[in-house]
């Protein structure tokens, strides 16, 4: 079966249009489009790409798109996939951004945004819960969580330094642990 760059772009364009509400829905969506409808990759591959994408830095949907595109057609496939996924959000946001200033003066829109903000708060909480379950596995990871949380809430500490610091702390901790064992 020959898959063209154009086809990859179009499929991910479609995914970018349907994808609504963040990372949670990307896996079933891609599974339907790539595995069930087109049989381009196996379900196992997709699940593996998705789970690695969650651990890596970056937007999970974009990471998964690059993985899948690369598997299908190398770096051009990866570029087509990620470009396809970004096209519709880009256009939609650029259109909305030009009118956002006016929109936020409409009382109804202000109230809707207010409500949506609280919905987002719940989504943040669910995201934290989901990552917590797979990442806070022992005392050290709990300690890291608390340190970074305190630094970010109480100081204006750059999140970049938090992540770099955590990476080094992890390496040092694992090195010490390996030596002790």
């Amino acid at each position: 079966m020959k898959i063209t760059i154009r086809e990859i772009y179009l499929v991910f364009l479609k995914v970018g249009i349907i994808l609504l509400g963040g990372g949670y829905v990307i896996l079933p969506l891609l599974s339907k489009e790539l595995v069930e409808k087109r049989n381009w990759i196996t379900k196992e591959d997709l699940v593996e790409f998705y789970s690695i994408s969650q651990c890596l830095p970056g937007i999970i949907a974009a990471n998964t798109a690059v993985f899948t595109g690369y598997k299908l057609k190398g770096k051009y496939g990866a570029a087509a996939a990620v470009a396809g996924m970004c096209t519709s959000p880009f256009l939609a946001i650029v259109c909305l951004a030009t009118v956002l200033g006016q929109l936020t003066k409409v009382p109804l829109v202000v109230d809707i945004f207010w409500g949506v903000g609280i919905g987002i708060l719940i989504l943040l909480l669910l995201t934290v819960q989901e990552i917590w379950e797979t990442s806070i596995v022992d005392k050290f990871t709990l300690f890291l969580f608390l340190i970074v949380f305190a630094l970010t809430v109480f100081c204006t500490f750059s999140p970049v330094y938090s992540i770099i610091g955590a990476a080094f702390a992890g390496i040092i901790y694992k090195l010490i642990k390996r030596r002790v064992e």
Binding site: S135, T141, A169
Partner: peptide, 30 residues
């Protein structure tokens, strides 16, 4: 890889804490 594993093991709790901190901020705002 040992180092990759060590980094992945420790950046996720930090990422989780950063999101939780945004949650606190939004909670405060709303």
């Amino acid at each position: 890889n040992f180092y990759v594993q060590a980094v992945l093991y420790s950046i996720k709790p930090a990422g989780c804490a950063l999101i939780a901190a945004v949650g606190v901020r939004l909670f405060h705002d709303y």
